[in-house]
Computed example of a mutant assay.
Amino acid sequence: MAGSGDAAKEYIAGSAAGVAQVVVGHPFDTVKVKLQAHNTKAHRKLYKNASHCTSRILVEEGIRGLYKGASSSFVGIALESSLFFGTYAHAKQLLQGKYEDGKPQLQVIIPSAACSGALISCILTPTELIKCRMQVQGKDAMHATWYSSPLDCAVKTLQSEGVRGIFRGGLATLFREAIGNAFFFCSYEYSRYWMHSYTDSPRFAGNSNLILAKDVGIGIISGGISGMAFWTTTLPLDVAKTIIQTDPSPLSSRNPLRVLSMVYRRAGLAGCYAGLGPTLARAFPANAAAIVAWEYSAKVLGIRGS
């Protein structure tokens, strides 16, 4: 069992992963959110595709438009990743004592990942609501309320909708995180295990540069694959969450399955997977960066080897 010092280091390494993920992935996320909010309406698509959406943002708002809502993401994702990776590591450690084997164990990974995902959904719901509401604003806001900053968005949401409003989309976020992170960590653990099995070689022994290059390469590939597994599995739930959180009507449904059914009737299967292109384009580099930052930080802090 890790001591309190190692526990604190796990959370620090998780925070580093979150910061890396936002830096690399936020522009892709902005495009995804705009497509989900504006391209799921019947007979009306504001953007032709992800490239058109990106060019519109750059022309109308500049590079800052792609990082709109990023400040709330940095705070939310740093805290979320800290809890996410730290909770997963400790839950896995507790369960792993029952299954002494070097190979990844589904009976360890799935409950650890689902538990961690369910926990962070409580943090992600309000931070993503603020982020999404900031992101869907263009120069001409389509919503009745204009938000000048993430803090202004949080305050106005609380004033108009109360605490319940700031947690709008919580059920969709819970489903997305619990299910998606089980797929994420299964993909990560198994791909990492097999890549290490095939690349472990005496030629790496004693050569720190080769070991670092190998570990970074494995981190990039396993992180990228895991991120794509997460989003391929859960994107429809994310579409529902975005619609629930950005719909200006306080009377709109908050049931993700009902919202998805409505989207399917209006825009078909393509509507349920709105934003798939930028989401997968973001998933590989953003999650690769997160995993490399997590593993490297853990190694620097002395809580894990290769």
Rank of each mutant, 00 (worst) to 15 (best):
A20Q: 11
F284P: 03
L174A: 10
T127R: 02
A274P: 00
P250K: 11
C272G: 01
K103R: 15
A154Y: 09
V155H: 11
L158W: 10
S73P: 04
C53T: 03
K156H: 13
P278Y: 09
K41W: 00
A205E: 14
V259I: 13
F230K: 14
C53W: 03
H90I: 09
F204C: 05
E100S: 15
T30C: 11
M134G: 05
E295H: 09
G65W: 04
L171T: 10
V33Q: 05
T234F: 03
V108A: 06
A229P: 07
G206H: 05
A20T: 09
R203G: 00
T87R: 09
T246K: 01
S121K: 01
W231R: 03
E61Y: 06
I220D: 05
I63V: 15
T127E: 08
A154W: 08
H43P: 03
S82F: 09
F85S: 06
A113K: 13
Y296K: 14
A205W: 05
I220M: 15
Q107T: 15
S116Y: 07
S252F: 09
P202C: 04
G97W: 00
E189R: 13
W146A: 12
S253A: 10
G206M: 06
N255R: 00
P236T: 03
Y47S: 01
R176V: 03
T234L: 03
K48S: 07
V263A: 05
L79G: 15
G305Q: 14
K214N: 15
R282T: 00
Y67S: 11
T40P: 01
A118F: 10
A17H: 06
A283K: 00
K103F: 12
S4D: 04
Y188V: 00
I220N: 06
N207P: 01
Y198M: 15
A144R: 11
L251W: 06
K34L: 06
E80S: 15
T199E: 08
M195E: 11
S73N: 14
I221S: 10
G14C: 13
G217K: 07
Y67Q: 13
C272D: 02
N49P: 02
L251Q: 14
E100K: 15
G302E: 02
D238M: 15
Y190C: 12
F185K: 05
H196N: 14
L119A: 13
T233K: 01
V263K: 03
S297P: 04
I179M: 12
D238A: 12
E100Y: 09
G117C: 06
C272M: 09
D200S: 11
Q21M: 14
A91E: 13
E61L: 12
H196A: 07
S197K: 14
A16W: 08
C53N: 07
T40K: 00
E177K: 12
C272S: 04
D215C: 01
E60V: 04
G62T: 08
T145Y: 00
D238W: 11
A78T: 15
P104F: 08
